[in-house]
């Protein structure tokens, strides 16, 4: 009985990918503003099986994503130091002012939603991302480069409600202030450029268009009409930016939804989740903690992690370990990254409680892996994060372990390089 309160017994098969899509999930809760949310690489993905990627590749791309997130902080500081005040680089000199860094925005752990753009509406499968602000899609005529995507590439010439933004408009100036965005001008037409590292970017026209989700539509939605798009976008048509900036989808639809949204990510790629805008659509079990901001990283959603428990044991980790660098919540990062002091404590306790199982070699950034070849059912310690106000996130079993086969399933957490990161 004691173990039932601190551990979960689970079928190994529930952790491994399935070839079939279980569409049953939350569709019963669907409302006008709730969208299906699918894993980019699973059998439910509208992008199809061609986009499937191995766990090792996903983890490598996840490293790139985290490097990019960390570089956002150092880039901001660099620019501020050079100019003496906060300043965003122009598109024309972005190569000088934004250091080239490893990393790509779009890792393989991303989720897809479908929106409609233009008049008549064209469906587009976009990556849903709380870690960036700009919504963009590939646009005809793809003047420089468009990657392969599932949907027909959006053609502004076939929409009755599309218009480019001119350089003289104030919105063009302000778009250049979006974190990570550079702006430019070509023949009086406003250009945007979003550069995520040394591999992923989108450059094109800043435009205004009608966008629809479910039965709701919004005129004059500002988005990037990409003419040069390169990166690990895996068949998607672009990105839906759900960050905090004034040009994010969340801010541009604030008049209707009041900057209120929620989501549920499915436990496996074989299930469907949901993304809801506006109040409602979530369970009454939800408990709230404070959403924090960091002035140097204004796009991101920060939370106040104060502790972690493993198998019902609250670990002794000084609160300052979490508070010194802060913690952001991101839909685009796969594996949580913790201060190394905190991760070391979790790993030690997890290994102790999992000592009946055989450790095996590391999987990329995951260093606590087990060979469960001889098991069909295993017992796993419950892992919980505790936030300010006593709110607890009891991680689902699918969020404690990660792997591609029974021979190598790992603790799905990793440490940062330094407690100050």
């Amino acid at each position: 009985r004691g173990e039932a309160e601190t551990h979960r017994s689970l079928l190994l098969s529930s952790l491994l990918p399935s070839a079939a899509c279980d569409k049953a999930s939350p569709t019963g809760l669907k409302t006008a503003t709730t969208l299906d949310l699918t894993h980019k690489h699973g059998p439910c993905s509208p992008l199809g099986p061609k986009s499937q990627t191995s766990p090792a590749q996903i983890l490598q791309q996840d490293k790139d994503r985290v490097n990019w997130l960390h570089s956002r902080l150092t880039t901001t500081i660099d620019v501020e130091r050079r100019s003496g005040r906060k300043k965003r680089p122009r598109l024309s000199d972005s190569a000088v002012t934004v250091p080239a860094r490893d990393g790509s925005l779009v890792s393989s752990g991303n989720f897809i939603v479908t929106v409609n753009l233009g008049t008549p509406p064209r469906p587009l499968n976009l990556i849903f991302d709380t870690g960036s602000d700009v919504t963009w899609t590939q646009c005809q005529p793809c003047a420089k480069f468009c990657h392969k995507q599932l949907d027909p590439i959006f053609d502004p010439a076939k929409s009755a409600t599309y218009s480019n933004v001119s350089c003289e408009q104030a919105v063009c100036q302000r778009y250049g202030d979006v974190p990570g965005v550079s702006r430019g001008c070509s023949a009086s037409t406003c250009l945007y450029g979003i550069q995520y590292g040394d591999k992923s970017f989108s450059v094109g026209f800043l435009a205004k268009e009608k966008i629809a989700i479910g039965r709701d539509s919004f005129d004059d939605f500002y988005f990037g009409c990409g003419q040069n798009n390169l990166g690990l976008f895996g068949g998607s048509a672009g990105l839906l930016g759900l960050g905090r900036d004034e040009f994010s989808f969340v801010s541009q639809t604030a008049s209707k939804y009041g900057k209120f949204f929620s989501y549920c990510l499915p436990s496996t790629p074989s299930n469907v989740g949901k993304l809801t805008f506006g109040k409602g659509g979530y369970s009454n079990r939800v408990k709230f903690t404070s959403l924090l901001t960091k002035p140097e990283l204004p796009s991101f959603y920060f939370v106040d992690v104060v502790g972690v428990s493993v198998g019902g044991k609250k670990l002794t980790i000084p609160a300052s370990i979490f508070s010194s660098a802060g913690t952001l919540i991101d839909s685009g990062t796969v594996i949580s990254r913790l201060p190394p002091t905190a991760y070391a404590a979790i790993r030690a306790e997890f290994r102790k409680q999992m000592s009946r199982y055989k450790l095996t070699e590391a999987l990329s950034l995951l260093d606590t892996c087990y060979d469960f070849s001889n098991f069909t059912t295993i017992s796993v310690p419950k892992v919980s994060f505790v936030f300010g106000g006593g709110v607890e996130l009891a991680v689902a079993p699918a969020g404690v372990l990660y792997g591609g086969s029974k021979k190598q399933i790992c603790l799905a957490l990793a440490g940062n390089g330094d407690d100050g990161d």
Binding site: P26, C264, S283, N284, R285, V334, S336
Partner: peptide, 30 residues
């Protein structure tokens, strides 16, 4: 910074009340 990734968010209702400055978690959302 530390990052709370999407694997740990799976099956949770994650609720953003940006204007109200609150973030909610609830188990068993999907």
């Amino acid at each position: 910074v530390a990052i709370l990734g999407n694997v740990q968010q799976m099956t949770q209702d994650v609720v953003y009340d940006v204007a109200g400055g609150k973030l909610g978690f609830g188990s068993g959302g999907c």
